[in-house]
Amino acid sequence: EEERTFTNEEEARKAKKEAEKRGLRVTVTKDGTTWRVRIG
C-alpha cells in the first residue's frame, strides 16, 4: 500500500486512473487543500 499526496486535483485524478489501469484499488480523499491518493 502506498499513499501519495497532491495539491492539484488533476494530478490526483491522473494518479488514480493510472493505478486503476494496473488493477489496483484506489481511494482518493481530500484533506483541506491536499488530495491523498491511497493505492493498494
Rank of each mutant, 00 (worst) to 15 (best):
L24P: 00
V37S: 00
E3D: 08
E10G: 09
R22H: 08
A15Q: 03
R25E: 07
K30W: 15
K21S: 14
E2S: 11
T7N: 10
A15S: 04
K17L: 14
E9Q: 07
R22P: 01
A12C: 10
R4M: 14
L24N: 03
D31C: 11
R25Q: 10
E11A: 09
K21M: 14
K14E: 12
N8L: 07
R13P: 00
T5V: 14
K21H: 09
R25D: 05
E11R: 03
G40E: 14
G40K: 11
F6T: 02
A12Y: 06
G32Y: 02
N8Y: 04
R13Y: 15
E20N: 04
E3M: 09
K30R: 11
E20F: 04
A19M: 12
R4F: 15
K30L: 11
R36S: 05
E3L: 11
R38W: 12
K14D: 09
E2F: 14
E1F: 15
E20K: 05
E2L: 13
V26N: 00
V28N: 00
V26W: 02
E9W: 15
T34I: 15
E11K: 03
R22Y: 08
R22N: 08
A12H: 01
R4H: 12
R25K: 11
R13I: 15
G40R: 11
T7W: 09
T7A: 09
R22A: 10
E20V: 06
V37L: 12
E2P: 06
K30D: 05
W35D: 01
K14N: 12
R22M: 12
R38S: 10
T34F: 14
F6N: 00
R36Q: 05
T33L: 12
L24V: 05
W35G: 01
E11Q: 07
T5Q: 07
G23P: 00
K21V: 09
E1S: 11
K16W: 14
A15G: 01
E11T: 04
T7M: 10
V37K: 00
L24G: 02
R22I: 07
T34R: 10
R38A: 08
E9H: 06
R38L: 13
T34Y: 14
T33P: 14
K16G: 13
R22T: 04
E3G: 05
V28I: 15
E11H: 05
K17P: 01
T27A: 05
E18D: 10
G23H: 04
K17A: 14
E10R: 13
D31R: 05
E1P: 11
R13Q: 13
R4D: 03
V28Q: 01
D31M: 08
K21D: 13
D31A: 06
T27S: 09
K16Y: 13
R36E: 03
F6H: 00
L24S: 03
E3A: 05
E1G: 13
K14V: 09
R4N: 05
T7E: 10
R36N: 05
E3I: 14
E9G: 06
R22F: 07
E3R: 04
N8I: 06
V26A: 12
K21F: 10
E11M: 07
R4Y: 15
V28E: 00
E10P: 06
T29A: 05
V28S: 00
G32H: 03
G23F: 04
V37G: 00
F6Q: 00
E1N: 09
W35T: 02
T29M: 09
G23Y: 03
E18Y: 07
I39D: 01
G40M: 14
A12L: 04
G40L: 15
E10L: 12
G32K: 03
E9Y: 15
G23C: 07
E1T: 13
K16Q: 15
R4A: 07
R36F: 13
W35P: 02
K21L: 13
K16I: 15
K14S: 10
A19F: 12
F6K: 00
E20W: 05
T33I: 10
T29I: 14
V26P: 01
T27R: 07
I39W: 07
W35Q: 02
T33D: 15
T5H: 08
E9S: 06
N8D: 09
A19K: 02
K30V: 09
R36Y: 14
I39S: 04
W35A: 01
E9P: 06
E3Q: 06
A12N: 00
R22C: 07
V26G: 03
T27V: 10
V37H: 01
E1H: 11
R22L: 12
W35Y: 06
E2M: 12
E3T: 11
V37A: 01
E2I: 14
G23T: 01
R13M: 15
E9N: 03
W35K: 02
V28G: 01
A19Y: 14
V28M: 14
E9T: 02
E18W: 13
I39E: 02
E3H: 06
R38T: 13
E2W: 15
R25P: 06
N8F: 04
R4K: 10
T27W: 10
T33H: 12
G40N: 11
D31G: 02
I39K: 01
A12S: 02
R38P: 00
G40I: 15
L24E: 04
T7H: 09
L24I: 05
T34L: 15
K17S: 12
A19I: 07
A12E: 00
A19D: 01
V37C: 04
G23A: 02
T34M: 14
E20I: 07
W35M: 02
F6D: 01
V28K: 00
V26M: 03
T7I: 07
R25V: 10
T7Q: 09
E11L: 05
K30I: 08
